[in-house]
Design a protein around this nucleic acid. Structure first.
Lengths: 239, 239, 239, 239
DNA sequence: GATGAATGAGTGTTCATTCAT
DNA sequence: GATGAATGAACACTCATTCAT
């Protein structure tokens, strides 16, 4: 069987070529989503950005929603995986927290566009295919909450803290920290600034949770009258 | 009690009625936006929800975008105003921070839907009329950053912290805390849970920033190797 | 009888006032139609131009179409009446033709906007209420055709000419002459230019019809080969 | 007879098919425009008339306005080109005038609908995209005016006539002559009638301009008192 | 597989017309 | 009579999706 000739050029198998195409389209989608958002982008934009024909997008993705889903998944799974890895590591809560923040900021440094898409589109579509995205989001929260809970059992974290809320705050700080880059509140490209932000977020958060005292001591319900506690107990931040 | 004369039926003037209508439509828009998001909501839905005719929406709002803008503005200005008021108060940074958090959580308790809209749509539309929304968002950040800067001058906050980042983190914690309610990660309606969340966010954040040590002491660039500092200096949280 | 006071001012009866209003609205409509055309103009524009309330237009005119009809009629009837008067005058065809052209150009001089509306909108709406307008238009043609026919019976006009076509040409020359003013091909406001145009149209047309020879002599069906007739007979242009 | 290979079925290339489609839509637009006018015609009508899907119209034309523009251009360019060709021919003014009228009436005979659209929509839209249409219209006027001017230099036309006005009158006669067919004042389909109209228009106009005397001789400003000139000078109509 | 023409439901917006005050 | 808020049908235009080549 002489086959089709064209042996030399690219030793890629058919499957490889297709996988490539798929990846090209996915990258293009990230690009365009990050620029115009999901609703502001048309399939044609993605096709043009990817340099492929209009209809080809539909060969690789069932529809626009699945495309976004894929964009989301491909970006999120990498992140989620790395975060999970850190969570599962057998280390002090402080070290693991630092590692998580590190992972997030590194992701931004490596691919700001993808992070932008994740931040801007995650959980923003109340209806439809959003299910997966939204749930994916709570996934990290839940995982991190388990980590914090475990840390409490180990005595690394004050018992009165709500572990879910700790997780929430952690990712709140991370997300908003990155958002300030994404939205240009601070210089997007300053590597040193990114480092500084990451470190401050880490240490502030860590010191906050490890040193936090029972909320009951500070009835914030009547905030204006409240005085800061005169002498907070300082839990050890190290192990 | 004759009171104001023409008491019974409709004491409203023409202008009153119109302002009412406008408000009704705005409420309906909040409702629908919060349920389906900006793109998922059709003018017709808003009209139906408000119980008015299709065209009337266009009598009060130039177009869909202006409607969202108004929804956003009406919700945001109230919040922004209250936050600003707390920021400007001449009190210790801890008290002001508590008050800000309090304002945010109260806003959620009072009108969760509106908060949802603000959270879900703020800064999420990369294109078009988003300018105002996006900038409005940085507005609070900037204002809060000034507050933190001032606190540093007063010696209420460690000098090495980036005030903008402090503001970012504060609102990151608040937003994500509320998001966890909005998205149902925790029970949406449990008043006690709301209180607890608010207090933990407040105290954790406060303790975090007032007790944070220079990031240089914890070179997070190589996070895994890092040991938590053995003996952090404890700044006074009270005045 | 103190009555209502305000006795002196305007002794207009109620009916007068109303007629005035009607006229004001009509003028405004002429203004706006001439600026934007029938379809490009909204009732609101007319109301604003007239300085009256939106809804008032509907007190005086059943609907937009009737408004245009009225604009058309008020403008056209004056013109038609004056043209008819000239047609019915017992004079030589040349004198009557001159008078008709004169009437048309005077109408333009007096109220170019109204003429513009008549020219631009007459017979341009193939559907709907156009019936009256369209037919009004043929009305003059028919009347003028009768005039020409009569002139033929009197021997003032060569018998071989189609009187309807004569009428058609006459108003074609008039309309296009005015159109060149309306559309700015020539200076809109130069009174002398208007006079000159009127005179040339008149004399050219007159000489054309009174001196025209049977078309059979000039088989235009093969126009390129045709030579102008060597010796046209010259009908007397005078009586 | 292998001919071009793949002879039977559809010898059209992809590009051919597309051009065809475009043409079909254009024809349909002419049809519908001529029936209902620009404003009365909906894109849906055009699509239905063309037997294509709604959206396809927008595949070939940017929007409704561009569609009309195309209709206009495609009709007008043909006419304009043929008229220009006659204008540029090196012949006596009489021959050229005859040819121009001939072209116009032939155009009507060939495609009355298209002529109707041109007549009804040319210069009728005071706003927007009308620019091209309006200016296209003056284009012929200007070109014809140059022709008449040149004829004056050659001594074929009395010097006192305004060449622009001659052009205006010529096309006025043509337009109104055709209008009388378009509007049904005379029988639309009678070929002989069309011929007769064309010939009378031609000869009347020609005799009018070649024999016209200075307007000063007939002060039409006071038309009623005016007597036709007793003895007009007769310029030779032949060369 | 690759292409882009074809389809048509969906939606924002306009504006004539009505009607309560 | 005057006013302008209220109504809703109508229509241009978009764009995800399909399909013939």
């Amino acid at each position: 069987m002489a086959e089709k000739a064209q042996p030399a050029k690219k030793p890629q198998s058919r499957a490889d070529r297709e996988a490539d195409r798929r990846r090209v389209i996915l990258r293009a989608a990230v690009e365009v989503f990050s620029r115009k958002g999901y609703h502001g982008c048309r399939i044609q934009d993605v096709a043009k950005e990817a340099g492929v024909a209009y209809g080809l997008v539909y060969h690789y993705f069932k529809n626009k929603d699945e495309l976004l889903e894929s964009v989301f998944a491909s970006g999120w799974h990498g992140f989620l995986g790395r975060v999970q890895a850190e969570i599962l590591r057998d280390q002090h809560i402080a070290a693991r927290t630092r590692a998580i923040v590190h992972v997030a900021f590194e992701a931004y440094r490596r691919d700001p566009r993808a992070v932008k898409v994740l931040i801007l589109e995650v959980g923003r579509s109340p209806a439809g295919g959003a299910v997966n995205r939204g749930s994916a989001f709570s996934e990290v929260i839940v995982a991190a909450a388990q980590m914090f809970e475990e840390a409490q059992r180990r005595g690394e974290l004050p018992a009165h803290l709500d572990p879910t809320l700790c997780a929430t705050m952690l990712f709140g700080c991370i997300e908003m920290g990155l958002t300030s880059f994404v939205m240009g509140i601070v210089d997007k490209r300053d590597d040193a600034a990114i480092d500084r932000a990451r470190d401050q977020v880490t240490e502030t958060f860590l010191h906050g949770i490890t040193g936090a005292q029972p909320a009951a001591a500070a009835p914030a319900s009547a905030p204006r009258a409240v005085e800061p506690p005169s002498k907070p107990r300082l839990p050890r931040t190290g192990h």
